[in-house]
Structures are given as C-alpha cells and as structure tokens.
C-alpha cells in the first residue's frame, strides 16, 4: 500500500490508481544472490554442474574414451593410480578415470528418464485426487499407498528379475516405484492450494476441473517439485547403482558406477582403486544433488 500515489481526478469514478509496479528483478538473479550466500549450496551446484558436463561431454573429456567399452589392454592391467592413469586401471587394463567419466552419462540418463516419467505419472494423479476428492481421489490414493508399501528396491529387483535386466527395464521399474512419492507430494500440496480463494474464483469464472487442476493449481506446485526433483535425482542414481551392483541393472561392459564397484570387489585388498573411485563418484554425486536440493528448499521455501 505504500506504493499508492493519491489518485488524480479522472472521468472514471475512483480515479486511476497509478502506484508503480514494484521493479521486477529477474527471478534468476534473486536466486543466484540468495544461493550464493550458502557455501554448501554452491558446492552442491558446482558438483551438479560438473556431473552434467561429464554426462554430456564425457566421451570427449575422458583421456581414454575407448576404454569405456569392451576394450582390453592386458599390458596395463591393474595398475595403481599414476600420472597416466589417475584412477588406475582395471583387470583388463582399462582406464578407471575414463570409465568413471563416461559412466556419469548412464547414471544421469537413468535419473532423468525416471524422474520425468515419475513426475508425468505422479503429479497429475496427485492433483486430480486432491481436487476431485471423493471416490476418485480415494481410489487413486489407495493405489498409491499400495505402491508406497512395497520397498522400492524390492519392487525394482522383482521387475528386473522378471523382465530381464536392461536399461529400459531398469528405468521403467524405478519410475513405477517412484511416481508414488510425486503423487503423495502433489496430493498434499494440491489439497492445501485448492482451498485458496483463487480456485473458487476460477470455478465462478466457469473454468472446468481440468483447467483448474492444471492451470491454476499446478503452477503453484513448481517450487516444491523443483526441490523434490533435485533431491530425488541423487536417490535414483543411488538406486540405479545398487541395481548395477547386484547385476540386475545395466549390463557390462557399460561403465555404470554400480557395476564397476561390483567388478572391483574381487580385487579389493590389493586394487583398492577399482571400487574406491566409482564409489566416490556415486557418493559425491548424491551429496551434490542433496546439497543443491537443500539450498533450493531454503531458497524457494523462503519466497513463498
């Protein structure tokens, strides 16, 4: 109200209320400035950007890109870390650093597909259940609870064992286990948002249920979704790696981090670098997405 300037006389009763629109600072600049104050969030952002760069440009960055596949170089097998092979070499002489770098793409690909699928399935179901409520909401949320009750790793293992391990199966299986979390989140948020007066205003305007659900309620979910997506990317990468480790995920010779840890296990007392570096890659990536997610949570939570 402090923006109001006394009205000038005008032919329209009430006068022109000509208070200035508050200066619009681009949202991203506020975001960068706020996030910048939290060193941990910046570390998270740095890690996430690094992983994204590796995932996109990995084959061009890796010193021995061919080692990502099924190459063999017995002359250099099981070498400890050196200037030539920073992370050492594996049992058939492949450069571990190159495999870790190229492996970022597989992990990010699993995470990206899973999250996109989970959001596309879970968010509409959650919003529809919350907005319509009644028997439809009940059915949708009971189905959701059935899925929630099964531990995701057990569910994914069962699906992968049933359909045979491959990348599309892994992605579909994790997504089927993961949509429930997005449905739950969207349901809770939408229940709260649907009580806002602007939803009633939209009903009075003649807007139908689908329009209200997706153009009035959904846009108000974006900040919580962004936080949840960021945090979940880390967890999906972890689950993907666990599947690889158990042999039910991506198959060798693809340089997936979980498989690399599993393969290195046999050489553990001596060739520690085979498990340590892929393990560190998983660890750092998950930590990175968590730190960024926490930072975004503080940032977006504070603005609401």
């Amino acid at each position: 109200m402090t923006n109001d300037i006394p009205a000038r006389d005008s032919p329209i009763a009430g006068g022109v209320e000509d208070g200035p629109v508050s200066v619009e600072v681009p949202a991203w600049r506020i975001a960068v400035a706020t996030l910048g104050k939290s060193p941990l969030s910046m570390v998270g952002l740095g890690i996430v950007l690094l992983i994204l760069v590796l995932a996109i440009f990995g084959p061009w960055i890796a010193p021995f890109p061919d080692d990502a596949g099924a190459t063999v170089n017995f002359a250099e097998r099981l070498q400890p870390p050196s200037w030539k092979h920073w992370f050492g070499t594996d049992i058939v002489g492949r450069d571990v650093l190159s495999r870790v770098i190229v492996g970022a793409r597989i992990s990010m690909m699993i995470a990206a597909f899973v999250i996109v699928l989970a959001v596309l399935i879970g968010v509409p179901i959650g919003i529809i259940a919350a907005y319509w409520g009644g028997w439809l909401g009940n059915i949708l949320m009971r189905i959701n609870e059935v899925f929630l009750a099964i531990p995701s790793l057990v569910f994914v293992l069962a699906v992968a064992a049933l359909l045979g391990p491959s990348l599309p199966v892994v992605i579909a299986a994790i997504a089927l286990a993961w949509w429930t979390w997005f449905a739950r989140l969207a349901y809770g948020e939408a229940l709260h948002i649907k009580e806002e007066q602007f939803v009633e205003a939209a009903q009075v305007s003649g807007a139908g249920g689908l329009r209200i659900a997706f153009t009035e309620i959904l846009p108000n979910l974006t900040s919580v979704l962004v936080v949840k997506i960021t945090l979940d990317i880390g967890y999906v990468i972890l689950l993907g790696a666990a599947l690889g480790f158990l042999g039910l995920g991506v198959q060798p010779p693809d340089p997936e981090w979980g498989i690399m840890v599993a393969e290195g296990r046999d050489q553990l007392p001596n060739a520690w670098w085979l498990t340590t570096f892929p393990g560190l890659a998983i660890f750092v990536t998950v930590i990175g997405f968590n730190l960024l997610g926490d930072g975004l949570n503080d940032l977006l939570g504070a603005r609401q």
Partner: peptide
C-alpha cells in the same frame, strides 16, 4: 460473477 473479499488470495500468484 463475484468480487472476492481477499484480493491477496483471490488472485493466483503465479499468473
């Protein structure tokens, strides 16, 4: 049509 009591919550903040 209706004009609502609370001009804060009757307008969708995202639009």
């Amino acid at each position: 049509q209706m004009v609502f009591q609370d001009p804060m919550s009757s307008l969708n903040p995202r639009k």
